[in-house]
């Protein structure tokens, strides 16, 4: 698939199209650093974190958490943020899908976008939320590709919209608008 890069004002962050590694914001006063993933994502995330750490301000408290799965990373982050003060920053390295999931949880913990730094190791997969049955699936797919919902078997188009609250893309039946009358999607 080769969609021309849509304008930057879509809800799809550019770092889910290309594996962007952002620079940490050195104005932070405390840092939670997450490395997420397995295999090449784990290796990539570890390298990104190694490059980040020396750029953080000397003396600022830094917590590094390495997890194979994103749930573990999110749990570690929530623990750090529970008593955090304004000035705290979160840095996350991993696949775009995991970074989106961490971002959703971080926003839910009152972090702002400007307080989050991402280092993306791969953009091969996307989380897709099915509007028909509400199942979320993670699939190897690009924007506007079609994936099959494993729960309701509908063919879903991966719409270029990402939920800030869940980190998943919107997916809806690909031929929803051309179905014969009387057939509901």
């Amino acid at each position: 698939m080769s969609t021309p890069a849509p304008p930057h004002y879509t809800s799809v962050p550019p770092w889910t199209r290309e594996p962007v590694v952002e620079s940490p914001d050195a104005t932070g006063t405390a840092f939670t650093v997450l490395a997420v993933g397995t295999g090449s994502d784990a290796t990539g995330a570890a390298a990104i974190v190694d490059a980040w750490l020396p750029t953080l301000p000397v003396g600022a408290p830094v917590q590094v958490h390495t997890s194979e799965d994103v749930a573990g990373a999110i749990a570690a982050m929530r623990t750090d943020l529970a008593g955090a003060r304004v000035g705290h920053r979160v840095l996350v390295a991993g696949s775009a899908t995991d970074c989106l999931a961490v971002r959703a949880a971080a926003l839910g913990s009152s972090l702002m976008d400007s307080e989050l730094t991402v280092g993306v190791t791969s953009v091969a997969t996307r989380a897709v939320w099915c509007v028909h049955c509400s199942a979320t699936t993670i699939a190897e797919a690009g924007l506007e590709d079609v994936v099959t919902c494993p729960s309701c078997r509908k063919d879903l188009v991966v719409y270029p919209h990402v939920s800030r609250r869940t980190g998943a893309h919107l997916g809806f039946q690909v031929d929803a608008e051309t179905l014969p009358a009387g057939v509901t999607a």
């Binding site: 006063t29 943020l81 705290h88």
Partner: peptide
């Protein structure tokens, strides 16, 4: 006081 505000302030 700016150094002691809960995240989200």
């Amino acid at each position: 006081r700016v150094r002691d505000q809960p995240l989200g302030t």
